[in-house]
Design a protein around this nucleic acid. Structure first.
Lengths: 109, 109
DNA sequence: TTATTATATTGCAATATTACGATTAATGTT
DNA sequence: AACATTAATCGTAATATTGCAATATAATAA
């Protein structure tokens, strides 16, 4: 099928899955890390930085933008990308709540 | 293609992507949340709890086990699952380092 | 031994993802 | 206007994922 049955899960569970999914590809991880490292807008050099073809990078950027994790400002013929700080923080809260669950008992069979 | 080019990314980037990928499905998120909530081993009731068919749940459990995030102990005819605490902590460190990056400058175009 | 119960595996269909060549769209330059 | 530059979109091929019916496996119970 390849089709996720989202209707049987909570909104939060689906939200976590959506965020996680976008981090589920090393190219998108690399793009985000680069944007954090550069610490300002990146205009254009992502293709040479990452090493995949331009349409492929463009596609990954689209997914990151669709989830609101990055912003893209048109700057002449190029586009400048940077982290969408507010949304990143919101995402982080959701993901941390999930990751930071901890077991009180470690009573396993 | 559908084939991720892992060789052009760092080990850490690929590791983050692998962990994120397994969280990229709400059923697996739900399974993990249930294991945390129950706070002890779960023997069998995951199928009725989640609402997908038994082979589907079994497959999701397999992926979680392969990444080392859960343990499965055979207990008679059933299998008891629980969070693999040590590995969960290790995973958390990797993911937190990625998520907790922060921008010093917010100098965007 | 023959059920019964619980989980895993197999096989398959439907859909999603990844990657890239070719093309298009948009802007800037001469 | 004509050309160059940059990024997005389209189309497509290859592979991956999701889900489940059917079956297999393993342990216990009768």
């Amino acid at each position: 099928m390849g089709l996720t049955k989202t209707e049987m899960f909570t909104d939060v569970q689906n939200e976590i899955a959506l965020f996680a999914k976008v981090f589920g590809h090393p190219a998108r991880v690399a793009i985000l890390e680069h944007l954090f490292k550069i610490n300002t807008c990146v205009c254009g050099d992502l293709v040479s930085e990452i090493g995949l073809a331009q349409p492929t990078i463009s596609q990954h950027l689209k997914e990151l933008k669709q989830l609101g994790l990055i912003k893209g400002n048109v700057e002449g013929t190029s586009v400048c990308y940077c982290i969408h700080t507010e949304n990143w923080t919101k995402m982080k809260e959701v993901m941390l709540k999930f990751l930071d669950q901890d077991l009180q008992n470690t009573s396993c069979c």
